[in-house]
Amino acid sequence: MLRFLTRRLLSAVLVLFAVSVLSFLMFFALPRDPVTAMCPKNCNPARLERVRQELGLSDPLYQQYVGYMKGIFVGRDLSSALGGHCDAPCLGYSYVNSEPVTRTITRVLPVTLSIVLPAAVLWLALGVGLGMISALRRGTLLDRLAIGFSLAGASLQLYFVGAVLLLVFCYTLHVVPVPHYTSIWSNPLDWADGLVLPWVTLAFLFSAIYARLSRAQMLETLSEDFVRTARAKGLSKSTVYGRHALRAAITPIVTIAGMDVGAALGGTVVTETTFGLQGLGRTVWDAVREGDLPTLMATVLIAAVFVVVANILVDVLYAFIDPRVRLR
C-alpha cells in the first residue's frame, strides 16, 4: 500500500511539473507582450518598463520559471507591485485586479468548493440510488420513471434548468433566496440556503448520468456468477444486493465520480454565471476576457492540482474496494 501510494504521488508530481512548464510556456509564448497583458489599463511606457524590469521579463525563460515556482514554495520579492515581499504560496500579482493572485484565489476558491462538494454528494447519492433501485425493479413503472428522469437530466442544459429553477423557486414561489455565498464558518444555515439551488441543479443534471451508469453496472453485476453463489448460500436479498452486488457495481462509478468532481472543482463557469456567484470558474472566465495572465496561470495550475488529487484519491479508493489492484 505504501509503495503504491509513493508511486502514485511521484507520478502526480511529474504531471504537475509538466503542466506548470507547459502553461508557463504557453502564456509567455503568446504573440501578446506579457507586460501589456498584465497591465492593460493606464499603462504609460515608463510604468511598462518598470513592470518588465521588476518581474524579470527580460531574463531567460527558465529563470522566470524558477522565479515563479520559487514564489509558490518559498515566496518572492514583488516590491514593484505589492511594495514588499509576497509570501508563499505566491502566485504572482494581478495588475487587472490590483491584488496578489493568491488573495483572489483564497476569496473565490471557497465559493467553488461550497458549490461543487455538497452537489457531488447529492448527485452521487441520488444517481447511484436511483440506478440501483431501477436495476432491482427492472421493467416496473419505477424503473421507467427513473429512466425518464435521467433522460431528461442528460439532455437538458445547465443554464436552462438553472434559469427555470431560479424563476420558479426563487422569483415566483420565493421558497429560496437569490443564490449568494456566505462562509460556512460564519453562518452555516445561510450558506446552505444561498447555495441550495445550484446544488439541486447540478445534482439533477449529473445524477442523470450516474443513474444510467449505475443501473447498467448493477444489471451486469446481478448476472455475475458470484451473485448466484451468494444466493445459493442462502443469504438474504438485502445482503446479496447490498454487500455482494453493490460493492462490485460501484467500482467503475468511483472512477468517474472522482474525475467529474476534480474537473468540476477546476471551474464551474456555467453554474457560477447562471447563479451569479463569484467562484473559480467566473474568475477564469474574467481572466480570459481581460487577458489577466497571472490569474489565468494560477487557475490552470489549481485546476490541474484538483484533477491530479482527485485521481490519486480514486486510485486509493479503488485499492480499498478492489483487492486485486493492490498487487499491481
Partner: peptide, 13 residues
C-alpha cells in the same frame, strides 16, 4: 451448490 468457474463464482473483493 458448487459451480463451474470458481474464479467468477467467488466474490473477487
Amino acid at each position: 451448490m458448487i459451480f463451474q468457474d470458481p474464479l467468477s463464482a467467488l466474490h473477487p473483493y
